[in-house]
Design a protein around this nucleic acid. Structure first.
Lengths: 116, 116
DNA sequence: TGACGTACATAGATAATCTATGTATAATGC
DNA sequence: GCATTATACATAGATTATCTATGTACGTCA
């Protein structure tokens, strides 16, 4: 199933910051990891992800550094900052409030229990 | 808490069609109902909602008719169509898949159980 | 009579993403 | 040896979406 873009857009930063709170990732790795962990629900294209990462760096949520992989290809790694940690907490809270509200109205379910 | 616009945008049609699947609503009533049922999580402005309703009518998800209220004010009621019913089912399914994927990654929870 | 709530509508600014394209190297298959 | 695919970055431009601001109009209440 193709998920509507509008739905995905609002959660992109939450998803990226979640990954980065565990370890440093490079852009391409984020795309592959989100695709795998979501069972292909999320299939970001480079053109969608890289500008978001640049914006996040601009806003101080992440910092980046370049490093060569074993294969010799250069990668640009992103690391979450304390400000990014705060943002992550904020976005997670917003997601909870938001998804609970949608579930209540659209599924008639106050507790955010989706489909269980 | 102010919920990010991006998050809300993708679910607008799902929410509206859910209400309309129960009874006919007029625009202003949709705004008030979503605000009330979501404990003020959703606070749509007219400028945001009316263009969406017009678009939905354009796409055949709803039809509209005008009717005077007891007070004499004219209202424009929206009614869901069979195509709108299909769209509602589709959007509900998408919401389930999407929210489950976000919950799995961001909350480490495979079943979409948010905060319980 | 003035303020507020109801009820509709749209123009224009703003913001966001996606499509398409480009570069470059490594690995794989034939 | 050569072509294709995967990896890995980047950006311009088109498209699309929403929000802000504004306008109209009527009813009600103080």
């Amino acid at each position: 199933m193709k998920i509507d873009k509008g739905l995905i857009g609002g959660s992109t930063i939450l998803l990226i910051l979640t990954l980065l709170s565990e370890k440093d990732y490079y852009g391409y790795e984020i795309i592959k990891t989100l695709e795998e962990q979501s069972d292909s629900t999320f299939q970001f294209k480079e053109g969608s992800l890289y500008p978001v990462l640049h914006r996040m760096e601009n806003e101080g949520f992440v910092v980046s550094y370049r490093e060569k992989s074993e294969s010799g290809k250069e990668r640009k790694y992103y690391q979450i900052t304390p400000l990014g940690q705060e943002q992550l907490a904020e976005e997670k809270e917003q997601w909870l409030v938001f998804s609970r509200a949608v579930n209540k109205i659209a599924l008639g379910n106050e507790f955010g229990l989706a489909g269980a």
